[in-house]
Design a protein around this nucleic acid. Sequence first.
DNA 1: ATAAAACCTCAAGTTAAGTTGGGGTAAAGT
DNA 2: ACTTTACCCCAACTTAACTTGAGGTTTTAT
Lengths: 155, 155
Amino acid sequence: MMKNNLEEAKLTVGKVAKRCGVKVSTLHFYEEKGLIRSWRNQGNQRRYKAEVLRRISVIKAAQKMGISLQEIKEAFATLPNNRTPDTKDWEKLASNWRENLTTRIHYLENLRDYLSGCIGCGCLSLNHCPLYNKDDELAAEGVGPVILDRKVKKV
Amino acid sequence: MMKNNLEEAKLTVGKVAKRCGVKVSTLHFYEEKGLIRSWRNQGNQRRYKAEVLRRISVIKAAQKMGISLQEIKEAFATLPNNRTPDTKDWEKLASNWRENLTTRIHYLENLRDYLSGCIGCGCLSLNHCPLYNKDDELAAEGVGPVILDRKVKKV
DNA sequence: ATAAAACCTCAAGTTAAGTTGGGGTAAAGT
DNA sequence: ACTTTACCCCAACTTAACTTGAGGTTTTAT
């Protein structure tokens, strides 16, 4: 027999935030964006089911790969009942994202190779150097944005 | 004998924009940010020296590598007299940026390898899975943001 | 019982890299 | 000469992913 939502949803925002290493405001934000959901107690405070923790870990893992929240949301939407990804679901999502990652890596490798060729030749010029080309011939498949860490290595 | 600025700066914004494939507003923006400079004619219109074309091509090439305008500006600032990079300068800048690119590639490769390991194991969990780890052990050297193309491959 | 900690909502601010638009001037084409 | 086209400046808008703050309520701890 299934417990009801009020019984299942016991975690407060503060607890979830702490366990996930995110701010409370981030949880509000994710909820607003439809990435997670909560229930309310008598006093109108949010209460979460434990599964939200896994959902957030999937979000964070995906973000690390450069997947946008919008894309993550769309990926979740493909799951039956928009459920929190279980092992099988994760397998499927992760495979897609891995392809994405591979594409991105190839792009950067191409870029680096061209760059290596360009260093020393001084060819850099509009319309000729592959490094400067608005049509972007390097982007065979097309890649998305990657936002990684904030520990930026200055050059 | 050196020609003066008025003689050298002959290109209008429109011309530069067209030849570089950027909008006029972008050139205004770059100037405001201190990435390029212009002179003014009698009627207060911008006039550029031809070297601005090369400068913009360097900016665009760097952006493609995921370097921010701020970092590009800082890199330019390291050049004698903040000049437009010549062949030798470009060699130096490009070498630095290539390292940056390499670091970024390694990061993504690590991420992909972990992901491959995770697919099927379903281990994804806070504090244990390397894919979800706020301390980011994957980021050995630390990497910056990469903003590449807009041709995003949906997953 | 009371005070402190946690929570609520809603609006506005933040950063990057530009874009858009309005109102007005300059240069170019015919 | 006259009309387009190009240019000027400035302010405000755009997107993503959040953060901050104000003013007020609920829980928890003492």
